[in-house]
Design a protein around this nucleic acid. Structure first.
Lengths: 164, 164
DNA sequence: GGGCACCTACTCGGATAGAGCCTGTCCGAGTACATGCGG
DNA sequence: CCGCATGTACTCGGACAGGCTCTATCCGAGTAGGTGCCC
């Protein structure tokens, strides 16, 4: 089992969009070039982020993508779920109700113990992702990366962004 | 993303084996019938559990599977990793080092912030699974399921198990 | 000179093929017992 | 009657196809601006 690679792309791209001036947008082409990604495939994931109300798109020659909310209001979990889906990692198929020892359905009101354990672990995973926001990722980036490199990045983005 | 369905099978089967008398074994056929599963496909997962040193196999007509350690010493995480693999859910491909803004490799000594967040969440998930053992699952089962049903189950297994 | 209609270029959006992993299956290697024979 | 060799049935182990999701791509719908024409 592995997460979709698009999750990594989405988190990086949302982080880049978080550093844009208010209202400004950045087209798919620039976002793809920034990290050396496939433009067409990235477009698919940006579409998923749009459907999840995380980013919004402006069509047309001066169009592009920008955040729909402030970075503090977007959790990492939202981005992961938008791209990878909201279905649980572990899906209990209730095999305890199968086989020669199966009882009538009403005998299984108590949840399956294995299902409970897996759900608890999954909740811990989701909680950890929910505690971190895009703003935290940006702060981590600004703290770790050299100022000069950040200025290069800002200039590169500024040359390709479209103002509101 | 979803976990392999074999994880559910493996956890249920290991729980059944945990209730066997010491030294007794149960063949694949019985384990598959118990939950109404495909015998041949379940065999594949039991093989993975054998390679992971969780269960052990005795060949021959009186052969079968039994736990290699006591239920208290087998964590849920071990079973999950034995069947689903030990690779991390999120694999950072270091796309921050790609594109026109890439620096020399030595500039990336600090870990990627996104990678850190995903790894922390994954650790929370694994920790939660590591805290629970097969013995806990069995205890949950014995607490929730009616005694009469447990007796039916024990009898069914006893008729098909092989003594040491 | 000003306003308007048209055209072009660029962007996003959904629908369409290919690769890799999970699912499902089969047949062969090895073992314990039952059986029949020889002593 | 006892011991042994053989045959058989049953078990696990690894190698072999099919389906579905993720990966990757393309073309069409829509928009903003530029341009040329008309008033």
């Amino acid at each position: 089992m592995k997460l979709s690679e698009g999750v990594e792309w989405g988190l990086h791209c949302v982080s880049v969009l978080a550093e844009l001036p208010p209202g400004a947008t950045l087209p798919t082409k620039a976002l793809a070039q920034y990290h050396g990604l496939s433009e067409t495939y990235l477009a698919k994931h940006l579409q998923a982020l749009t459907n999840a109300r995380i980013i919004e798109s402006l069509p047309g020659p001066k169009g592009g993508y920008r955040l729909q909310r402030s970075p503090e209001e977007i959790t990492v979990l939202e981005v992961v779920e938008a791209i990878d889906g909201r279905e649980p990692l572990f899906r209990c198929t209730e095999i305890r109700q199968q086989g020669p020892l199966a009882q009538e359905p009403q005998a299984y009101r108590r949840p399956c113990g294995i299902h409970v354990v897996m759900a608890q672990a999954e909740k811990a995973w989701r909680d950890a992702l929910r505690e971190q926001t895009i703003a935290d990722l940006v702060a981590h980036y600004q703290h770790d990366v050299a100022v000069k490199q950040q200025q290069r990045s800002t200039q590169w983005v500024t040359e390709r962004m479209r103002r509101a």
